[in-house]
């Protein structure tokens, strides 16, 4: 790894249009753990061009999705060219917005995608898979013993139809397990769901106090019409929750999860409401199993799935693609 590299991080759109700008800060932290702190600078998109001129980075890494048509990346490219910097994108909305990838394929020197299956569908040459991760500062929580956990099952996220459907299927099981579902767009028929948004830290607090955190990936596309790509790589909640110290029940729409957390040991898989029921019963019958899973997952996440790990991966790929 090139320790003398200067990296400027920014987002794919101004913070006022960006609900995920905080990922830039997580990545900033990750890079700063690998490079000298003054070699890493994170700035909002609005000030990216001025910062490139002043900071003179070797690499500009733009993080986010490409869903907005009113953002211009050409001026950033031009600024990079002036300073002889490489321009990289770390796209975290694949495959849901993959139809927009054309916007930057000819512009970027390197592209990182959060989704392993989408990776194969890029036309550009230097494209690598880098999943999102967890931020130690924001998401890490001490492992609480079972008796200090006052939530049975927890789920945090938007109520996309596929998620609603699964939770509705397991409604009876969940209703009797002190379940807490938070996020936008949940129907009132799910009595344990509440339309309430959480910050990353608040979500970590909830997970820490939950015996089980349910993990169901998103199946809702914004711009994924061309190839209808199914998402493959687990979302960032997987790593964040692991760091927060909760056992996770992961709906297995594939087995890529096993590349990150070991099923049965570091994460629990489910395929139907009956499996959900079985694991809910563990809350009362054998809670220590769940605590062990939570502990193992946290150790693994700390070791392999923080933004420091992701930053290292990115730096390696950058070197490899030079």
């Amino acid at each position: 790894m090139n320790q003398s590299l200067k990296v400027l991080l920014t987002s794919t759109c101004p913070d006022r249009q960006n609900s995920n700008w905080v990922i830039r800060n997580y990545a900033d932290q990750g890079f700063k753990e690998l490079l000298p702190p003054d070699a890493v600078l994170a700035v909002p998109f609005e000030s990216a061009i001025a910062s490139i001129r002043q900071f003179k980075p070797d690499v500009v890494l733009i993080i986010g999705g490409l869903g907005l048509d009113d953002i211009q990346y050409q001026p950033v490219r031009a600024a990079c060219d002036r300073e002889n910097a490489r321009l990289a994108f770390w796209l975290h909305d694949d495959p849901y917005e993959f139809d927009y990838a054309y916007k930057i394929e000819a512009l970027a020197d390197v592209i990182f995608t959060n989704d392993s299956w989408t990776l194969h569908h890029y036309k550009a040459k230097s494209v690598f898979h880098v999943p999102l991760g967890a931020d130690a500062k924001t998401h890490f929580r001490e492992i609480l013993p079972a008796h200090q956990r006052n939530i049975g099952a927890f789920f945090c996220g938007v109520g996309y139809p596929n998620r609603v459907k699964i939770l509705m299927q397991a409604k009876t099981v969940l209703a009797r397990s002190n379940t807490c579902v938070l996020g936008d767009n949940w129907p009132s028929t799910l009595t344990f769901a509440k339309n309430q948004r959480l910050t990353g830290a608040e979500m970590a607090d909830y997970s820490q106090r939950s015996m089980i955190t349910i993990n169901i990936g998103r199946d809702m596309d914004i711009a994924n019409r061309r190839f209808r790509l199914p998402a493959s790589t687990p979302g960032p909640r997987t790593f964040e929750t692991a760091l927060s110290g909760s056992a996770q029940l992961y709906f297995a729409n594939g087995l890529e999860i096993s590349d990150y957390l070991e099923p049965g040991k570091e994460i629990l898989l489910f395929d139907g409401a009956d499996a959900l029921n079985y694991h809910m019963n563990l809350i009362n019958s054998n809670p220590e199993i769940l605590i062990e899973v939570a502990r193992a997952a946290q150790q693994r996440a700390l070791k392999d799935h923080t933004y420091k790990n992701r930053a290292a991966l990115i730096l390696n790929h950058l070197q490899e693609s030079e």
């Binding site: 392993s116 299956w117 596929n162 459907k165 699964i166 299927q169 397991a170 199946d219 790509l229 199914p230 493959s232 709906f251 729409n253 594939g254 087995l255 890529e256 395929d271 139907g272 409401a273 009956d274 029921n277």
Partner: peptide, 22 residues
């Protein structure tokens, strides 16, 4: 006949292979 099975999901070709393998 077992309505608790979750059947409305999709996966990539690689994941199909993983599931087939297992």
């Amino acid at each position: 006949i077992y309505p608790e099975l979750i059947t409305d999901w999709r996966c990539s070709n690689i994941e199909f292979a993983r599931l087939a393998n297992k």
